[in-house]
Design a protein around this nucleic acid. Structure first.
Length: 415
RNA sequence: GUGGCUAUAGCUCAGUUGGUCAGAGCGCCUGGUUGUGGUCCAGGAGGUCGUCGGUUCGAGACCGACUAGCCACCCCA
């Protein structure tokens, strides 16, 4: 069984139950996004490789070792999207949406990353996300973060998560800070873990967020970004925090929140849970004012986040039940024909109808019970002759007779 | 990519120091007679014990490789 017919490592089939859980997360995002006036966008899963390599940063782990990149039959290097922000940015440019500012978009769909699979981490995984373009003000950050909190609230996950935010500063702050941090770390290079020595070269900010105990101790009194912020960057971050406070969005500043992708600046934030082991980030995002330019477009500010559908679905587990059907149980050929028509009519009226394909009364009742039907509409020769059906409440066992033409009046109201 | 743990029926798992060990519960199927499910009772069908090699008179049990899952690192949603 676990032989050759298994899915590719890190991918999995989503069975009806999984799909319902995913749909619930997607619906939560969609309904929140609509309230904020965000339109849905769907971009291709395949993009030309530079769409990602140029925007995420050549040195990032995602680009260096996690992308599904290959040559298509035309000899073009293409990549299965490892995230959606770059794709959406590309779409904004491709479709001339630059005149539609501010531009508010949300999405849901599969992403691909060649990582070692773990719980909450798959090679094909799914994300929901929102992107806000053309708003350089901190109000944009506040709105976007509030949307994240709303989605979590919609899913009943607010209690299980906490919001941590940080600022990466503007370009000037970042350069200043980076220099200071690198200088600090270089002096203590010998004490760093191997991983962090490597980080020092590639992405020094990441050292701050190392889980190595030695690194953490060493980094405890490293210079802080806050000492190196320009006045503008500081004011920006303060405004974001004030905005969140005004909206009652609880948050905590964590100077160790860092982004792994190059396009981020200013605000970085994560909604984190303790209930998923090492993969605790459930929604992560920030501001990416430089992204458009890096992609060859005009300067255009952006903020957004992405949320892991699998992770959110796991946290929100349980409670996703399909609507209970009504089972129609015909007995005899004549009734069978009538049942087909009745099922059709009732379905058109919006009822969930389960019509067995075969079997005697007992078999069909068992089937009705198995699909957790709320009622059974029984009709045999007796009933047909009298122009009625027997309606049985499968929870209470009570039965009543109804006119065959007004069956829907006895059925639960659908929603 | 690194380290560790795991891999037995559809699912959850038992299988003692290698020799009737191929099992249980749940699920599934069929009955308990003719138009009433959920409970109960009785039967039944499902596994070449992840794959491939090796050790041994003999391996589901020991060893190796591979594959996959899980945990941590890493990375990130």
């Amino acid at each position: 069984m676990a032989s050759k017919l298994q899915p590719i490592r890190g991918t999995r089939d989503l069975l009806p139950e999984d799909c319902r859980a995913h749909a619930r997360v997607e619906e939560a995002c969609r309904s929140v996004a609509e309230r904020y006036g965000y339109g849905e966008i769907r971009t291709p899963i395949l993009e030309l490789t530079p769409v990602f390599s140029r925007s995420l940063g050549d040195a990032t782990d995602v680009v260096q070792k996690e992308m599904y990149t290959f040559e298509d039959r035309g000899g073009e290097s293409v990549t299965m999207r490892p995230e959606n922000t770059a794709s959406v940015a590309r779409a904004v440019l491709s479709n001339g949406l630059l005149n539609e500012m501010p531009l508010k978009l949300h999405y849901a769909g599969p992403m691909f990353r060649y990582e070692r699979p773990q719980k909450g981490r798959y090679r094909q995984f799914h994300q929901i996300g929102v992107e806000l373009y053309g708003v350089p003000e901190p109000a944009g950050d506040v709105e976007v973060i509030a949307m994240g909190a709303d989605v979590l609230a919609e899913l009943g996950l607010l209690e299980q998560t906490r919001l941590e935010i940080n600022t990466l500063g503007d370009a000037e702050s970042r350069v200043r800070y980076r220099d200071a941090l690198v200088a600090f770390l270089r002096e203590r290079q010998e004490g760093l873990s191997e991983d962090s020595k490597d980080r020092l070269e590639r992405n020094p900010m990441r050292v701050l967020d190392s889980k190595d105990a030695g690194d953490q101790a060493l980094v405890a009194d490293a210079p802080s970004i806050f000492e190196h912020l320009t006045d503008e960057a500081r004011a920006f971050f303060d405004a974001v925090q004030d905005g969140l406070t005004a909206l009652g969005v609880d948050h905590k500043v964590n100077p160790r929140i860092v982004r792994g992708l190059d396009y981020y600046c200013h605000t970085a934030f994560e909604f984190i849970t303790e209930n998923l082991g090492a993969q605790g980030t459930v929604i992560g995002g920030g501001r990416y004012d430089g992204l458009m330019e890096q992609m060859g477009g005009p300067a255009l500010p952006g903020v957004g986040w992405a949320g892991g559908i699998e992770r959110l679905a796991m946290l929100a587990a349980g409670g996703v039940e399909a609507r209970r059907p009504v089972a129609i149980v015909p007995l005899g050929e004549e009734a069978e024909k009538r049942a087909l028509v009745m099922a059709h009519d009732l379905r058109r009226q919006g009822h969930v109808i389960e019509l067995g394909y075969r079997g005697n009364l007992k078999r069909r009742m068992q089937r009705a019970n198995k699909v957790h039907a709320s009622h059974a509409v029984i009709m045999g020769d007796d009933e047909l002759a009298r122009g009625i059906v027997t309606l049985r409440d499968l929870d209470s066992g009570e039965q009543a007779e109804l006119s065959i033409d007004s069956v829907s009046e006895g059925l639960p109201v659908h929603g």
